[in-house]
């Protein structure tokens, strides 16, 4: 991860917090699209509400958000459309409720993907994080429910985590509005290219699969040189995903 230097004031969240306007459902004329993804019941809707000022129904059970919700906020004169996706455990399965999230991350081309995780269940949540990082280059990890992690006596080194994942990590407790200004600042910097990610790519793959992936991905790159996720498409082709085969033909994800 590479951060370009800035003046001291510009980097201060409190200085910039003045520039935030919650726009509710008014999602017209936006500059950037931001997707909120994550496992079920990690507080995506709570983060969404905190940023947009909306009151999406929240509840402590997995599977509460069943449709895509959209809202907006303005930060330093730029308008961001925020899309709250239904929670998913994985992008590899074929279940229908997860399709909304899968398709949006892959084909909706969000400028930034915010991956919301439950800080006290990080290992399980990383399964999805690592998959999303195969697809997109511009992501931020929102380490939510930090209050619970602290109560469970977990200590998380966010700098190591950011280095290993290759994306910025922002600890939050969205229920208490903690960390939200920092998250918004990071989203804005990612969208404007002030932070450049070097996302982690899955390493522990058996050699034969890795070789197959390289072969396929090289060929895909020849046809579509500009896509960041040729390896993911190769993965899905090996899986035999019909959806991907179709879109490969139409070239929709370019």
């Amino acid at each position: 991860m590479e951060v370009k230097p800035k003046s001291a004031c510009e980097t201060c969240v409190q200085f910039n917090a003045d520039g935030l306007k919650k726009l509710g459902v008014n999602t017209s004329d936006f500059d950037f699209v931001v997707a909120l993804a994550g496992n079920p019941n990690t507080g995506k809707s709570t983060v969404f509400n905190a940023m947009t000022g909306l009151r999406q129904h929240t509840g402590n059970w997995p599977g509460k958000t069943v449709t895509r919700a959209e809202g907006a906020f303005e930060y330093n004169k730029e308008k961001f459309k925020l899309v709250d996706l239904p929670g998913t455990y994985s992008l590899l399965s074929t279940s229908e409720d997860e399709e909304v999230a899968r398709n949006f991350i892959l084909f909706g081309k969000p400028s930034v993907t915010v991956i919301v995780v439950d800080a006290s269940r990080l290992e399980r949540n990383l399964n999805l994080v690592l998959q999303i990082l195969e697809i997109t280059n511009n992501a931020v990890l929102c380490l939510n429910l930090m209050d619970e992690a602290q109560r469970n006596n977990l200590e998380i080194n966010t700098r190591t985590l950011a280095k290993d994942l290759g994306i910025p990590v922002v600890p939050t407790s969205a229920r208490y509005n903690r960390g939200i200004p920092e998250l918004i600042q990071t989203i804005s910097e990612l969208a404007n290219g002030k932070i450049v990610c070097k996302p982690h790519r899955i390493k522990n793959i058996p050699k034969n699969i890795e070789q197959a992936l390289e072969k396929l991905s090289a060929e895909i790159k020849e046809v579509y040189p500009d896509i960041p996720n040729s390896r993911w498409i190769a993965l899905r082709l090996l899986e035999g995903d019909r959806n991907i085969i179709e879109t490969l033909k139409t070239g929709e994800f370019v």
Binding site: N127, E155, I156
Partner: peptide
């Protein structure tokens, strides 16, 4: 399995239970 192995490695480096 590969993904989970990666996840375990990352967590091992970043999370500590006090």
């Amino acid at each position: 399995e590969g993904i989970y192995a990666d996840a375990a490695e990352i967590v091992k480096g970043a999370v500590r239970k006090k």
